[in-house]
């Protein structure tokens, strides 16, 4: 670095820059204000401003005859959320978010555990890149890949046919609720893609939590006579739980707000994100769209409060 060499010490000049910096040094608050003004203005005006405007609009209502927005304070739009159709959408989305979160945790746990405890040297890097690449790979491409897999003429049907298990798929698809004409238009398809797309978000927080568990603790548990299953349930899982909760913040929030996955792979039944999109777009019902958008905010607010109590933020 330049300053290490005394002859290279910068000459003291009384330029404008020096005078400005002297003022800033004597008044750190001024410096702080100068540093913070641009980002706070940007985020405060553009982001919080828009959010506030959205919130405000959710208290207006739409005149169903004229299609115009009625700028008067009302809770009617929120009441509309509780009509059977709309409440169904909320319930469906929350159920899907919960299922996807649970499945992600189950698949992510072994990967995170192996990476945290057993992977050394080159394997560590392989695991790291192996999680990072799918995490950052294009979201749409991932959905597209699943469209290729789940399509009727796609690879999954082909593989099952070769294994003579096609009857199994057909039997599954004929089930109510989870089935459909083909996997790519069934709730199961939506579920698989949600799990696939958000699962990498679950691995890293769990891995971070598991890395903090000392190996000696697990050995002690074994020495005291616990079977591996018992060690897992009574020692490892409670210690990893903050990590799981931290990961579930991502998977839950992302599933709540997504409207592209169910649109491309799934049935015609709506999710919250799709409802927001359709009400603001085709229907032009901005107040109802805004009210729908408030739902994930409220749910995530509650979720984050609980997560904070469980110490999940330390695992982030």
């Amino acid at each position: 670095m330049t300053i290490a060499d005394p002859r290279a010490a910068l000459p003291r000049t009384d330029s404008a820059a020096t005078r400005v910096s002297d003022v800033l040094w004597r008044r750190p608050t001024l410096l702080l204000v100068l540093l913070l003004t641009p980002p706070v203005l940007w985020l405060g005006i553009i982001y919080l401003g828009s959010l506030f405007a959205l919130l405000l609009q959710s208290f207006f209502s739409i005149d169903h005859f004229t299609g115009l927005i009625n700028y008067e304070f009302t809770l009617r739009t929120y009441a509309e959320l509780f009509t059977p159709t709309n409440f169904d959408i909320i319930l469906r989305t929350v159920t899907m978010a919960a299922c996807a979160t649970l499945a992600s945790a189950i698949i992510a746990f072994p990967i995170a555990y192996y990476a945290a405890r057993f992977a050394r040297g080159r394997w560590r890097a392989v695991f790291y890149i192996g999680v990072m690449m799918p995490l950052w790979s294009s979201y749409l491409v991932k959905i597209y890949a699943w469209k290729l897999i789940l399509a009727k003429e796609g690879i999954l049907t082909w593989a099952l046919e070769k294994l003579h298990l096609l009857w199994l798929l057909e039997a599954y698809l004929s089930l109510p609720v989870v089935g459909g004409n083909s996997l790519s238009v069934s709730p199961t398809g939506t579920f698989i893609v949600f799990v696939y797309v958000w699962m990498p978000f679950m691995i890293l927080p769990i891995q971070a939590a598991l890395e903090r568990v000392p190996a000696s603790m697990l050995e002690a548990s074994g020495d005291l006579g616990a079977r591996p299953g018992q060690t897992f349930r009574h020692v490892l899982l409670p210690l990893a739980l903050p990590g799981v909760v931290a990961g579930s913040i991502f998977t839950f929030s992302l599933t709540l707000g997504d409207y592209i996955i169910p649109q491309i792979i799934g049935t015609s039944r709506l999710f919250i994100g799709q409802a927001v999109y359709q009400h603001q777009g085709i229907a032009g019902n901005i107040p109802l769209a805004a009210a729908f958008a408030v739902v994930p905010i409220v749910i995530m607010g509650i979720y984050l409060t609980i997560a904070r109590r469980m110490g999940a933020f330390d695992a982030l």
Partner: peptide, 8 residues
């Protein structure tokens, strides 16, 4: 969720 940022 992104949809909130988007519609806002």
């Amino acid at each position: 969720p992104g949809v909130v940022t988007g519609i806002a």
